[in-house]
Design a protein around this nucleic acid. Structure first.
Lengths: 110, 110
DNA sequence: GCAATATGCTTCGCGTTACGAAGTATCGTC
DNA sequence: GACGATACTTCGTAACGCGAAGCATATTGC
């Protein structure tokens, strides 16, 4: 399990990327990301949903409630145009940042 | 400039790594990391020093005040044994985390 | 000689955010 | 009908990066 501080900068990015090109509900997003990370990432429900609410408030994603009989009620989220742009930006920022950190903390400062 | 949240998980690691095998004072650490990052990283003084105080309180680093005439007073920090271990751990955690995130947000989920 | 700039450190309050805890409710299965 | 998985909600807390303001000394340029 990674430290909360480490996750801070990438929660949104991870969730946004899970919605790229498809529609998913909250619980599904959590399970998917846990799976894609090979179990390394554990999502806390309180964190997961609060991030989703925050992103919807900001207009990055749009939720739609679906209630079918024989199924639990679920809120399916999809990226908005804005969300797609934010995803591109955040992915770029993450790549630049992680590359930079890896360079700086590398041992090659002889 | 990277977002504050992104930096959250790596401030300590960056500073620890700047003290690997040498002794430096606060201002110097800031400038060094800005330089090593090619100017991408900007250190806020309030952040920099508060991280240093925190790390000293935790016993990761040890500061020593030096006052020479003709020079400003400076506090030189060095890694403690514990700090060296933390650096190793944090570096490992960072590598694992950044690799994981890069995999998960990669577009190859066809 | 004196202003401007760089160096070097300190303290305080704020806003954001991941998390724990507790709760509600439905569905499958043994 | 007990138990676990599914699915979502709300609230309070602690940690941390940062802006702002301040203090003090050295160097540079006019």
């Amino acid at each position: 399990m990674f430290s909360a501080d480490l996750k801070r900068g990438s929660m949104e990015l991870l969730i946004l990327s899970s919605l790229e090109g498809c529609t998913r509900h909250g619980y599904e997003i959590g399970k998917l990301l846990e799976h894609r990370s090979g179990g390394q990432l554990e999502f806390r429900v309180s964190t997961l949903y609060s991030v989703l609410y925050r992103m919807e408030e900001r207009g990055w994603i749009k939720g739609r409630w679906v209630e079918k009989k024989g199924e639990r009620r679920r809120c399916y989220y999809k990226l908005t145009r804005k969300g797609e742009r934010i995803l591109v930006d955040q992915r770029k920022e993450w790549k630049a940042f992680s590359t930079m950190v890896n360079q700086v903390i590398g041992v090659s400062h002889a």
